[in-house]
Amino acid sequence: MAGRSKPVDLATRSFATQGEATAFFKAMLNRYRPGEQVNEEDALDIAALLERHTEYTAKVGKGVSHFEVMMTEHGTQCFRIVRTDGSGTDFSYRNCITQRPPSRKQEVSQAFRRAVRFDLYNARDAFFATYGDENGNATCAVTGEPITRENAHMDHRPPMTFEVIVTTFLCSRGLSLDSVPLTTGRDDQVSPEVADQTICEEFRAYHSSVARLDLVRNTVNLAQASQHRLKDGRASLT
Results as ranks from 00 to 15, higher is better:
1 M>C: 04
1 M>K: 02
1 M>L: 09
3 G>A: 13
4 R>M: 15
8 V>L: 13
10 L>W: 09
11 A>P: 07
14 S>F: 06
15 F>P: 15
17 T>L: 12
22 T>F: 07
24 F>H: 13
25 F>E: 03
26 K>T: 04
28 M>N: 02
30 N>V: 01
31 R>E: 00
31 R>S: 05
33 R>L: 08
33 R>P: 03
33 R>D: 08
38 V>S: 05
39 N>P: 03
41 E>T: 14
43 A>M: 04
43 A>R: 07
44 L>V: 10
45 D>C: 06
45 D>Q: 09
47 A>R: 13
48 A>F: 09
50 L>P: 14
53 H>F: 10
54 T>Y: 11
56 Y>D: 00
57 T>I: 05
59 K>M: 02
59 K>T: 09
61 G>I: 10
62 K>G: 05
63 G>C: 12
64 V>G: 07
64 V>D: 15
64 V>Q: 15
66 H>Y: 10
70 M>W: 00
71 M>Q: 15
72 T>Y: 00
72 T>E: 10
74 H>D: 13
80 R>G: 02
83 R>A: 08
89 T>I: 04
90 D>C: 11
93 Y>V: 05
94 R>Q: 01
95 N>R: 07
97 I>Q: 00
99 Q>S: 07
101 P>N: 03
103 S>K: 01
104 R>L: 08
104 R>E: 02
110 Q>H: 03
112 F>Y: 03
113 R>S: 06
115 A>M: 03
116 V>M: 06
117 R>P: 02
118 F>G: 05
121 Y>A: 11
125 D>R: 11
126 A>R: 10
126 A>G: 06
128 F>K: 09
129 A>M: 03
130 T>W: 00
131 Y>I: 00
131 Y>T: 10
135 N>P: 04
142 V>Y: 09
143 T>M: 08
146 P>K: 07
148 T>W: 04
151 N>P: 00
155 D>W: 07
157 R>Q: 14
158 P>H: 08
160 M>N: 12
161 T>F: 05
162 F>P: 10
164 V>M: 14
165 I>R: 03
165 I>T: 09
166 V>L: 13
168 T>V: 09
169 F>T: 11
170 L>H: 08
174 G>F: 01
174 G>N: 09
176 S>C: 04
176 S>Y: 08
180 V>F: 01
182 L>S: 06
188 D>L: 08
188 D>T: 11
189 Q>I: 02
190 V>Q: 11
190 V>P: 06
191 S>E: 14
191 S>N: 14
191 S>P: 08
192 P>H: 00
192 P>M: 02
192 P>I: 11
194 V>R: 01
196 D>V: 09
197 Q>V: 06
203 F>I: 08
203 F>D: 10
204 R>L: 06
207 H>V: 01
215 L>E: 04
223 A>V: 15
225 A>N: 14
229 R>V: 06
233 G>D: 14
234 R>K: 13
